[in-house]
Every structure is written in C-alpha cells, then in structure tokens.
C-alpha cells in the first residue's frame, strides 16, 4: 500500500542550522497523525516540504507515491495545506477568496465552503484583512477543507480558535476522514486535543524524529517504574527519562519485558507523560536499534522510521 506521505533521509538546512535532519517517515493512507515537538524542532519545515513549499536540502519526499514537485498540478490537487500565516489574499473579500478556491481547485466543494462560512457567521462581503485572527484562520481552514484533498497538512490548525470553533473544526475534520478516508497530518502543542483524533504520533525534537508510532503501540510499549532511590535492578529496555528525589526514583522505560523488581511499582503512563519525557530527553529517545534515530543509526529502507514494537532491543 502506498503511503500518503513518505520521506527518506530528509534534511533541510537554513544557512548554518539544520531545520530537519535524517528524517525517515511513512504516513499511512487514511491515518490521522499528530505531529508534536518544540518550536523550531522542524514540524513546520516537515509540513512545508510535504506541501512543496520548501525544498529539501537532502533526501526524498513522495506524496501518494509521486515525488513532490512544488508546482506540479497533480501534487497540488491532492493536498490541502494550512499554516499560521493563513494563506489568504488580504484585500480579497471572503466571497472572492472562495471564488478563487473554486476556480483553482477541480474538486472544490463550493456548497460546503459557503455553508461553513455561513455557519461561522463570517460575512462574505468582509475583506480578509478586516477579520480577526481567529476568523482568518477559519476562512483559511474552510478553503483548505473545501478542496477535498486526499492529504491534509495542517500546521497548528486550532491554535487561534476558540473552544467552540475548535470542536467544530475537529468534528468536520473527523467527518471527512470518515467519509473520504482523508489522510491528515496535523501539528499541535496540545496532546489532550490530539489524542482523541489521532491514531498515530510523530515526535520531532532536536530536528529529527524521536518517535513515529501508532499511539496504541506507543502506550503499550512504555512503562513508568516507581521505586526507592537508585536504579531499578535488572530492567531491560530503553530508559527514556529518570526523575529522582532523595527517597524515590521514577523511570520511564520503553520495551521492557522482564518482571518488575520487588519494591517497585509499575504504572501505565498517559500519552502526555510519554511525549513530555521524550521532549525533555531528546538524546535518550534515539535508540540505535529503532531506525528513528540520529546520524549513523538509520536502518535502510522505507517505513523504518515507523516502528511497531520490535525484537531489536525493544525498538519503539
């Protein structure tokens, strides 16, 4: 099955700094994938490269099996892109913006676009620049969704939306996933919002992929061990984070299979705990066996950035 988005060895340099490096990812068709990471980690870069808005310095990017050509019609027809810069023509009226969408996009759903704008209470005659930031975001999202693209690349789509607008957007988004099997890759800082809608998660940190996994597997693979001061004896797997007080040690470990040592408690971490642990310990996340790691540790071939559980040292 062709992945909706596949990147191999992807790197993007900005003068002296690498925005992304050694990225291998494979986003399955029909999945809803959350993209998390600190600001500057490369989330926006990844989305822009996938959209053809930025050119990779190294590596390859394909969307539905075809290499990304920035102005290729085939590519542009299949993707929808949204970011915080709200790609709208500021002097256009909202109605004109929708007309642009209709003329540029062969699969445009004009009825849906107008219905959403109407439900949001945004007047068609208002100029884009007169709208509030949140309203502009909503218009940009309406344009993006009305395109009926097969792959949606959304950079913090709900960041400037009020709680009701957020809920509405996610409802519409999930509706399009249910109806059309749309693939969605969306970045966000709010794990609790991503969790109900996403089935996969990518953690980008230090410009590379720390984690790329189905959320179920991610949670099944990680345990929190809580015990007295000192390290848990004889625990296998890969330690992601360790927190110590004079009396107590808490360890987040991945891929541990041995029984828990006496005197230690084992807990199931929630998704936010796991994500925060990876973000706080970017060096620890890279497991040489996982393929989702730094230089020199990449395994060959597509899909190795995506990990199920593995026999290779409890790779993520």
């Amino acid at each position: 099955m062709t992945a909706a988005l596949e990147v191999q060895g992807l790197g993007r340099r900005y003068r002296t700094r690498w925005g992304l490096r050694h990225c291998d990812l494979s986003v399955p068709v029909g999945s809803v994938t959350g993209l998390v990471g600190p600001n500057g980690a490369g989330k926006t870069t990844l989305l822009r490269v996938a959209a053809g808005l930025a050119r990779p310095t190294e590596g390859t990017v394909t969307v539905f099996g075809a290499p990304v050509h920035p102005n290729g019609t085939e590519h542009l027809n299949r993707i929808g892109y949204f970011d915080q810069i709200h790609p709208l023509y500021r002097r256009f009226r909202v109605g004109e913006m929708l007309a642009v969408g209709r003329r540029l996009n062969p699969q445009w759903d004009d009825e849906a676009a107008h219905r959403w704008i109407d439900e949001l209470g945004i007047p068609l005659g208002a100029r884009v620049r007169q709208l509030s930031g949140g309203q502009q975001a909503q218009v940009a999202l309406a344009v993006c969704l009305a395109k009926r693209a097969d792959l949606l690349l959304l950079d913090e789509p709900v960041a400037s939306l009020d709680p009701l607008a957020r809920t509405r957007l996610l409802q519409v988004l999930m509706g399009t996933v249910a109806d059309r099997g749309t693939t969605v890759l969306l970045s966000s800082h709010i794990i609790s919002e991503l969790e109900p809608v996403c089935d996969q998660l990518i953690i980008l940190s230090a410009s590379t992929v720390q984690v790329a996994s189905p959320i179920d597997d991610l949670l099944a693979d990680h345990r929190l061990l809580v015990g007295p001061a000192g390290d848990p004896p004889g625990v296998d797997g890969h330690v992601i984070s360790t927190t110590r007080t004079p009396r107590q040690t808490t360890v987040l470990v991945r891929g541990s299979t041995v029984p828990i040592p006496a005197g230690w408690e084992v807990l199931e971490p929630d998704l936010e705990e796991v994500v925060v642990a990876y973000l706080a310990n970017p060096g620890n996340g890279a497991d040489p066996g996982s393929g989702a790691a730094g230089p020199g540790a990449r395994a060959a071939g597509p899909g190795t950035g995506i990990v199920g559980s593995g026999a290779d040292g409890g790779a993520l």
């Binding site: 099955m1 992945a3 494979s26 399955p28 068709v29 029909g30 999945s31 089935d199 996969q200 790329a212 996994s213 189905p214 597997d217 393929g291 395994a299 071939g301 597509p302 899909g303 190795t304 995506i306 990990v307 199920g308 559980s309 593995g310 026999a311 290779d312 790779a315």
Partner: peptide, 8 residues
C-alpha cells in the same frame, strides 16, 4: 489505517 511494519 496501519503503520507499515518492517516485518519484525
């Protein structure tokens, strides 16, 4: 909607 596994 599955991640591609590498056969491990």
């Amino acid at each position: 909607r599955q991640m591609e596994h590498t056969g491990r």
